[in-house]
Design a protein around this nucleic acid. Structure first.
Lengths: 212, 212
DNA sequence: TCCTTAAGCTAACGGCGATAGGTTGTCGTT
DNA sequence: AACGACAACCTATCGCCGTTAGCTTAAGGA
């Protein structure tokens, strides 16, 4: 692998073509190696067949590039969750399916999950609220699903937003521990996931009090 | 700040004295800046008044150093949790207190929590089981506390280890989201924590079935 | 006094993200 | 067909990083 494989310069109006090639190369590198550290500006440039400074024609810095890559992949999270909940008539079961889909997706994309949801990138409050984070579109699904559970009388009445936030924390906890701690959990993952979701649904079930 | 402030060479038998100074300097840097990236070998060496290679007389590499720093601080987690649960006669309340203490500690030491529990450092399964991780001593407390809840009839019978694992995921989820997402949760943190712990305890309460 | 050896240093390597400023190919204009 | 402008990309370099090989110096016993 000595040949530099120089890339042909893009025609005049289509400088942005390089942008897509960069994103593709970075994504490939990230998935291949599973390590953000291996995705260096130099390695990306090399893969594309271009010199490092050219990257900066399209991205302000490395963080922006990596973030863009993860955003692209995370667009699928919303779809996966939507699919998981669609057509399930029992609202509680539908909600559980959302959680299962979330955990599965995160586990299947550990490097990206790490960068987006466990990284140093300071997620601004705006990102969080305005749905710049693709994951936050999915959060809306959870809120709606919780509300459906409450309206069906399956869950005790309460603030769906608060409940959804709690659920997010739970599935994120499972996902992120699975990513960080090898061999977590020491029991079968599916068993833990079933258990956790079951505890959540029992804890939220309409009974005596309400979910304040 | 021009003076290099050279450190005096340690007497013959006490070369390990430098080790402690390095750990102290690294800890100070980490807390001061809150950023692992700012804790460079060079910065540490500079703070101690020594040259970078001297660090390697006491630590194999940077990871080992940083890990050692975090371990030192995390030794307190066990104490804090122990203290939080001690003398509380209601076992469920005691368990909740453990969770609260965990979240509080993690939130107060974000940089360290990030490195130990959200970092790339591949926690070996041995670390996890043998309690090399100081946090795992704390995990034992949780298992015992869960068992107490079951024996008191407050929780449905089941596998305390599984239940404790689920609880860990929950408190870790809250902690790590608080660290990663600024302004999380969009509701008051205490409200969310109360909610989450309440849902857990309700979901685990002895009622019809058991916690399989 | 001298000699061993622990304790720490100097110099350097390769890799990183990023920037300043030059080159070259493409395209509309004449 | 020749030209000039500008987009697209490159060369050279800076300052940082972790890490290593090999040298120096001071401490302490003989």
């Amino acid at each position: 692998m000595g040949a530099p494989a120089r890339r042909r310069r893009a025609p005049k109006g289509e400088g942005d073509r390089l942008r897509d090639e960069i994103l593709a190369a970075a994504e490939h590198l990230l998935i291949e190696t599973g390590d953000e550290a291996a995705v260096s500006i130099r390695a990306i440039a090399d893969a594309v067949g271009v010199t490092p400074p050219s990257i900066y024609l399209h991205f302000a810095d490395k963080d922006e590039l990596v973030f863009a890559v993860c955003q692209l992949e995370f667009a699928e999270l919303g779809r996966r969750m939507e699919e998981a909940g669609r057509g399930v008539e029992d609202p509680v079961q539908a909600l559980k399916n959302l959680g299962r889909a979330y955990i599965a997706f995160g586990t299947e994309h550990p490097a990206q999950y790490r960068i987006l949801l466990m990284g140093k990138r300071e997620l601004s409050r705006e990102d969080f609220e305005s749905g710049t984070l693709p994951g936050m579109e999915a959060f809306g699904q959870v809120v709606a699903s919780v509300q459906a559970c409450m309206e069906a009388g399956a869950f005790a009445p309460g603030d769906p937003f608060l409940v959804a936030m709690g659920l997010w924390a739970v599935v994120h906890g499972v996902t992120s521990l699975r990513i960080t701690v090898p061999g977590f959990p020491l029991v079968d993952a599916e068993v833990l996931i079933d258990h956790v979701l079951e505890v959540q649904s029992r804890g939220l079930t309409a009974r005596d009090g309400q979910n304040e």
